[in-house]
Write a protein that binds this DNA or RNA. Structure first.
Length: 550
RNA sequence: GUCUCCGUAGCUCAGUGGAUAGAGCGCUUGCCUCCGGAGCAAGAAGUCGCAGGUUCAAGUCCUGCCGGGGACACCA
């Protein structure tokens, strides 16, 4: 990690605080408590420099002094540093930094030394994280909405791994209970129909065409003997088929789960009984009208909840609580539940259950995502043609689907712009980013064909666009930290587009391969490789291909 | 009715309490003798839903209202 590029905001924050401390010693800054870190953000206007801090404005609150005076006092005491060329102040109380071009140029070598890991962080080192996502029961093909949760969960997992965490991707499912029984019945009805036998498909049953297709296949393979098979038999067949389908769909979307956790195992190993026992001992259970109730109101809930129905069957809440106990027992330092908005209400009850059991559970976090709608849907004789994730990937490609599902913040509704997704040009943000990568690869290929390569003398990088590109590349670790802190993977798509834009601007401004300027060419080829690494890493974390040519 | 998410340019959406609110699409206008034009540049386009409040500073935080999505089972 020692040779990773320095993180600019943290470095500038440290300089600011050193300056403030020195100013206090010198008596030019009133005594006051300094924050642990100073706010540092990219400057909004290039006239002010590269980065700005509002630290003086914050200190004005506690000291009562004029922000401009505080800014001047602090700025005067900021120690010299290799990464800063000069500092300045601007109204009403900002301190501005202009980075040293030589320092920026040096960072290119740091990036090349670390390669794809250049932006990796270490705050997750020696920690275990679990991300649970998708978690659809095997009753049918994955919807686009589940795909969103899949893309979000997997990308978050990728970024957590980049932050040093040992990450487990987990899929929680239930292959018992009412839903699956209905699935078995639904398939049985379709098979009987396929055999020309009477059977009624009720509104309760799954209506999807995929079951008819499966029934056709089964009849072709096994014939009339199927007529005497049990619902259980069909349930097993349907489940196997649906799961194979789901796994294939996830694989297309570049998602590989580490664990498929069966809810049933919580019944089998006595976890449910144990949770009930512990809740009863703790005094949070009571019996009423033949059902077992959880006193959720005593943990701040709006109403009490049934955990065991009067039929003796548990509601979904009990295994949910037991499952999260299981997660906690596995020693994860961070647990993230990626849930669709429709399942969001279950989460507080689980947390209250854990609270009642004496767990703090502060390391369990919820990443809720809103729904997806598909815009520009083609009129089709087959209604709902694009509602499955597979159909959408057939239409526009897996890379485009994955990127589009990650473009919006999770809590916003996502409108999938099918027309834009179908564009195979720069209008399509996925191609825009991939093109930038392919373009750099092409330049590197051309240079290599002429026997040219990158060189370590990056001091030749003097153009402002080159500096802008380096600064942009150095933002990636900040983005990764932001993604983890806010559980918001969409920042990565925004970053990828911005980086691609900066790359294209650099390409316009700076002729890279120029045999008359060998030193400059070598330096620029180094920068090109660094930029290619940045794009490739961003795309890799997003789970999207970084093509060498298109 | 209660809870929750959203409301920012014509459309889809970004926007760690800080300066003159941004991007893509769409629209207008330019740029290939030249490493990939699948690209670049410029322009028009805004009462940040409304009203209060907190703050030196609010698109951002708080309250209320309006509008939209979702959830409110002894379904999962």
């Amino acid at each position: 990690m020692n040779n990773s590029p320095q993180r600019i905001p943290a470095a500038l924050s440290a300089l600011l605080l050193q300056g403030a401390l020195a100013a206090q010693h010198a008596g030019t800054l009133p005594a006051c408590e300094l924050p642990e870190s100073a706010p540092v953000a990219p400057a909004k206007n290039p006239l002010w420099g590269d980065f700005s801090s509002a630290l003086p404005l914050q200190l004005a609150k506690t000291t009562g002094a004029k922000p401009a005076d505080l800014a001047a006092a602090i700025q005067a005491c900021i120690p010299a540093s290799a990464l800063v060329q000069h500092t300045g102040c601007s109204a009403p109380g900002f301190i501005n930094f202009t980075l040293a071009p030589a320092w920026l140029a040096q960072q290119v070598q740091r990036i090349l030394e670390r390669g794809l890991a250049y932006a990796d962080l270490d705050f997750g080192r020696d920690k275990k994280a679990q991300v649970e996502f998708v978690s659809a029961n095997p009753t049918g093909p994955l919807s686009v909405g589940r795909g969103r949760g899949g893309a979000i969960g997997d990308t978050l997992a990728n970024v957590l791994a980049a932050a040093g965490y040992d990450v487990t991707r987990e899929y929680y499912f239930n292959n018992a209970g009412r839903q699956m029984r209905v699935l078995g019945e639904s398939l049985q009805v379709r098979v009987l129909h396929a055999l020309g036998l009477p059977a009624e498909l009720t509104a309760e049953h799954y209506q999807g065409e995929y079951l008819s297709d499966l029934a056709q296949k089964l009849v072709a393979a096994h014939g009339a003997a199927l007529a005497s098979e049990s619902v259980e038999y069909f349930k097993d067949l349907a489940e196997a088929d649906m799961f194979a389908n789901i796994r294939a769909t996830l694989s297309r979307l570049n998602i590989k789960m580490d664990v498929f956790f069966n809810e049933n195992s919580l019944y089998a190993d006595g976890s449910l009984e144990r949770v009930l026992q512990q809740l009863r001992t703790a005094g949070y259970l009571y019996d009423q009208e033949g059902a077992v109730w959880f006193a959720a109101t005593r943990c701040g809930g709006p109403e009490d909840r049934v955990l065991v129905k009067s039929t003796g069957e548990p509601t979904y809440r009990l295994p949910d609580i037991a499952y999260h106990c299981n997660k906690l027992a596995r020693g994860f330092d961070l647990i993230v539940d990626v849930l669709g908005a429709d399942h969001k209400d279950a989460f507080p009850d689980v947390m209250r259950g854990l609270q009642a059991l004496g767990h703090t559970a502060s390391n369990i976090r919820l990443l809720m995502n809103q729904f997806v709608t598909v815009k520009g849907e083609r009129m089709s004789t087959r209604a709902g043609r694009f509602t499955t994730l597979d159909a959408l990937m057939d239409e526009v490609g897996a890379d485009v689907v994955r990127f589009f599902l990650l473009m919006r913040s999770a809590e916003s509704h996502l409108e999938f712009d099918l027309d834009l997704a179908l564009e195979q040009n720069e209008k399509n943000p996925v191609f825009y980013v991939q093109y930038a990568h392919a373009r750099l690869c092409s330049v590197l290929r051309k240079a290599a064909a002429e026997g040219l390569g990158g060189g370590p003398n990056t001091a030749q990088l003097t153009h402002t666009t080159e500096h802008t590109l380096v600064r942009r590349l150095l933002e990636l670790p900040e983005i990764l930290e932001l993604v983890v802190r806010e559980l918001a993977p969409h920042h990565l798509t925004t970053y990828a587009r911005e980086l691609a834009g900066t790359v294209h601007a650099f390409y316009r401004d700076c002729r890279i391969v120029d045999s008359a300027q060998p030193a400059q060419t070598a330096a620029r080829l180094s920068l090109v490789e660094a930029a290619r690494i940045g794009l490739a890493r961003a795309l890799q974390l997003l789970g999207v291909a970084a093509p060498q040519e298109m």
